Amino acid sequence: MEKPKMIIAGGNGFLGKHLVHYFTELGYQVITLTRKRGYRIGMLHWDGHTLGPWTKALEGAAVVLNLAGRSVDCRYHIVNQYAIIRSRLDSTKVLGEAIAQCQNPPAVWLNASTATIYTDTRDEQPANTEADGCIGRNFSERVAQQWEAEFWVAATPHTRRAALRTAIVLGAGGGALPVMARLARWGLATPQGDGRQWMSWLHIDDFCRALELLIARPNLEGTFNLCAPQPIRNEDFNAQLCQHYQPRWQLPQPKWLLEIGAFLLRTETELILKSRKVVPQRLLAQGFTFRFPTCDLALSNLLPQLT
């Protein structure tokens, strides 16, 4: 029997590599669209904004998954803002064009988005759900809105679609957690700013399993929050890192110091100071069972893999 085909655009990063392994183990033929030139097994070259020979791979695909987009770990000056926006809109637009031209279009198109689309949610404000989340108006939030708008405007009537509003994904093989762990060893496992901001997150295993669910159920389409059901405050997350690593000293991280550090590191404090309080209402309604519903379970599983 021929293996179902999955196309992953932008699949060379932390999430993509995990997904390639996960869905290969499930019996998929996984093909990654990459900007890197040169022949590699399971990879096709594309530039992320123009049609080309890579479009043939989409014919008859079971799944197209778009993860393409420039990192937001940078300063938000005008040049970087433009690059962040164009990398997301262009890749989404050209995938829509490619799918629209298919004689046998893909069954499912999953397109990355971000839980950052919701506004800064403080204190005891209700968590943001897909049904009644409060959409923000700052730069990163507007990027997410434009990204999703480009996705939904695509003319692909024969392909089921889902937008993935993904929170920070925790894993031992890359992403943000290894960086957080290294800082914790250096004594930077203290509250960042006032520490009261919420953090929505998801274990890498549950991320892969959630996508498996979305692919398997033909009735699921629209927008989905991909995050664990229990957000955690920044101060509590850092306390768990501190408990694990037991650093010899603990350095305070007030907002003014973080602003200086972000400037020197050419990044933005929004990445750690914004309060992201999001819950996966639609996944829970589908009966999805999280293997790691709480952050202490996730960190207990992942941190030993980093030591």
Rank of each mutant, 00 (worst) to 15 (best):
L213S: 06
M199C: 12
L213W: 10
P157D: 06
L226T: 08
A176L: 14
L211N: 08
E212A: 15
F207G: 04
Q230I: 06
L188Q: 03
D206I: 05
G173E: 15
W201L: 10
L188A: 12
Q197I: 01
G193C: 07
W152K: 07
P191H: 08
W186I: 00
L211D: 07
D194V: 00
R165C: 09
R165K: 12
W152E: 13
R161P: 05
Q197P: 02
V153W: 01
Q230L: 10
R209P: 01
T166E: 09
R209V: 02
D205Q: 14
I204Y: 02
M199P: 00
V169E: 05
R161T: 14
S200R: 11
A167D: 08
F207S: 01
G187D: 09
G195H: 09
A155Y: 13
A154P: 08
V153C: 13
L220D: 02
G175P: 03
F151V: 03
L164Q: 08
F224P: 11
W198A: 05
A210P: 07
F151Y: 14
L211P: 03
W201F: 01
M199W: 14
V153N: 11
T166I: 15
F151M: 14
S200I: 01
H158S: 12
M199V: 14
R182F: 12
E221D: 11
L170K: 01
N225Y: 01
E150Y: 14
E212P: 00
A154D: 01
G174K: 02
A172R: 14
R165H: 13
R165N: 11
V153E: 13
I168R: 04
P178F: 10
R185D: 07
G175V: 04
W198G: 03
W201V: 08
A184F: 03
L170A: 10
W198D: 11
R165W: 11
W198E: 07
D206V: 03
W186P: 00
A162K: 09
R161Y: 00
L211V: 10
W198C: 04
A176M: 13
P157R: 05
R161S: 09
A167W: 03
R160Y: 09
A210M: 14
P231Y: 01
L177T: 01
P157G: 10
